[in-house]
Design a protein around this nucleic acid. Structure first.
Lengths: 345, 345
DNA sequence: GTTCTTTATGCAATCGTATGCGGTAATTCG
DNA sequence: CGAATTACCGCATACGATTGCATAAAGAAC
């Protein structure tokens, strides 16, 4: 039964337009897609077709074009968690660039988990897209290989060491910034016991920042004391938990370095709740410079990353590849970080 | 020329699987889509097919299914701005429900603008999706009519008065909450000059909340003084601007009601910058209860909405329609608000 | 042994669009 | 006036998966 007449969906197709304009469906296609240098179209015909398009309110069905092997006009973006403010400017920047190119954006969360990242890869294979932007913490070259060989999509990745002729990489120089900020804490501010709130080493960014932190300690000939290292999960609550551990030590640290702002804010909250004065009793420094860093009191000293800039870079690199404006080996773009000194140190 | 061998994209299709398993392509389809009650498949055949699928790493191409008139396994969601923390839990909730159903989510920003909302409608017509979730501020029934008649998508809308047999509506009871909170400010807290930071009346939510505010004033027999009404654009900065205007009055208000938390936070910031003590010199109350409301000092008193709950409601209603578990007239769901008293009043 | 089910599989049409190729009419040229 | 261009346009097919219908083989009933 060919769908009862009461059904509301009546898709207007090219054939309908063709019928109304008294031309063939292929002519409609040619008028609309306007191939330069292709078969020319008569003025009269073109006019009739455009009139019919207008009258029927025809919109091309993008799925059909995708199937035919054309562009899908979609890109997919994977981030850890849309709830984390750090990603918002990044997502927004990507969306803006994409929409300027008339592209839609599918957004997926990995929740910082390996399975989440793998699920994303699979979904991209099932639903081909023209481009993929990823902020992975776990997946490396081998895993991306699958994606690369199974899809024609352009690929841009943030923050992973990946060298592949078909993927561009955008890097925040977070390790260098981490080293410099730690050194600043030690040299300029005189801190010699610094608590570190990190994450498990599975996270490449976590491992990288911790290494840079350790490097700075060594450089300053400071001892590495295990009790000053706590593991969080990027969330406000985990920052609070970590600082409570620190405060229960016989000699609490005089400063705390959290590898993201959410944990730093949690640390401040929890410390203040115990009557600790910041920065006098304990200094707190974060990483990211999310907008909320200036909302808390004292305002958070932090290492600024520029997620909007990262997003823009990634999206533009991606579209250069999608539009074939760039073909060639994988590129590397660096987005710098900057120490932003406020009141919490 | 049939694409040179150097090209990286080698899509594995059902035909490849069929060839390998020595069956027809339609048999592969039947094995994979596993129609219950349909034509049965021999054990041996099924095994061969599944082996071939495994060996080739086959994934079905979702675009093809969409074209054939099946589901697209995509929903589209329109919000005002992904940068606004209020939407994050909502987006997240929608994504979670969608992913549980193996659906992808396309997210678009309207930027609070009518054109943005219209652009979204068009994009949904061009790329059919199974469901649409909208948080419109401008579009009403007539505009949605176009969407409804041109697409088979299920539709759920937040916060607009729309009565249509095919769309469900989720409502925050923001008008009632606004009235009650204002009354509380007046009766319990004794404020008689309350500054109101709203938005232009084009926003239905803005108009609704302002009406509720005015209603509360009238109920309390308070005068309506134009100088106590400022127009913002939902952003932190606009809240700051508004409060500076208030402070320049000969008789500044003793309390400020902002219709969202971002503007309230901006108001607090700007007031504090001018040495105004909150809540003693001036009370501030917001709307939404974004997580950051507890990060600022003093902690923000505000009317809590429950965006995660809203998102969940919308998504579940949507999928009930998509899966045809519900067919019937448009439903209305209410999500209540609640006054959260903290330190800023 | 013939006819009728039942079971399992293949064939081919279909969705909406893009495009190579071939065909027709109008135009130009010799 | 006949032939060669040129300008336009339609036919047919491809894209990948779903699905109604036909069909072949096997089994059951007579």
């Amino acid at each position: 039964m060919p769908r009862s007449g009461s059904s509301p969906k009546k898709t207007v197709t090219m054939r309908d337009v063709a019928r109304m304009a008294n031309v063939s469906q292929s002519t409609v296609s040619r008028v609309l897609s306007g191939v330069e240098g292709g078969i020319p179209i008569g003025e009269e015909t073109r006019r009739r077709v455009l009139e019919a398009v207008e009258a029927l309110g025809y919109y091309p069905n993008l799925h059909a074009g995708s199937l035919r092997g054309q562009k899908t006009f979609m890109i997919a973006m994977m981030i850890a968690d849309i709830g984390n403010p750090f990603y918002h400017p990044m997502v927004r920047a990507v969306q803006d660039v994409a929409h300027a190119h008339r592209y839609d954006v599918i957004i997926a969360n990995s929740d910082h988990m390996r399975e989440g990242e793998e699920r994303f890869l699979e979904s991209v294979i099932r639903r081909p897209v023209d481009g993929v932007i990823m902020v992975p913490y776990h997946l490396g070259e081998e895993e991306l290989e699958l994606l690369i060989e199974r899809t024609g999509a352009a690929i841009v990745v943030l923050g992973q060491q990946i060298r592949h002729p078909r993927v561009d990489v955008v890097f925040g120089q977070d390790d260098r910034a981490m080293f410099e900020a730690t050194t600043w804490l030690i040299q300029e501010k005189g801190h010699r016991r610094i608590g570190f709130i990190g994450v498990t080493e599975e996270f490449s960014a976590g491992a990288r920042r911790k290494a840079a932190f350790l490097h700075a300690l060594q450089q300053a000939h400071l001892p590495i004391e295990p009790e000053l290292f706590e593991i969080g999960d990027w969330s406000v609550e985990s920052g609070a938990r970590a600082v409570r551990k620190f405060l229960s030590l016989t000699r609490p640290p005089t400063a705390v370095f959290a590898i993201n702002d959410l944990m730093a804010i949690g640390a401040m909250e929890a410390a203040q709740a115990q009557g600790v004065h910041i920065p006098d009793d304990m200094a707190v420094i974060g990483f990211d410079d999310i907008p909320q860093a200036t909302w808390v009191r004292p305002r958070l000293t932090t290492v600024a990353q520029y997620p909007a800039e990262m997003g823009r870079q990634m999206a533009e690199a991606l579209f250069e590849r999608i539009q074939k404006e760039y073909v060639g080996p994988g590129r590397r773009f660096e987005v710098s970080c900057r120490l932003v000194i406020r009141e919490s140190v």
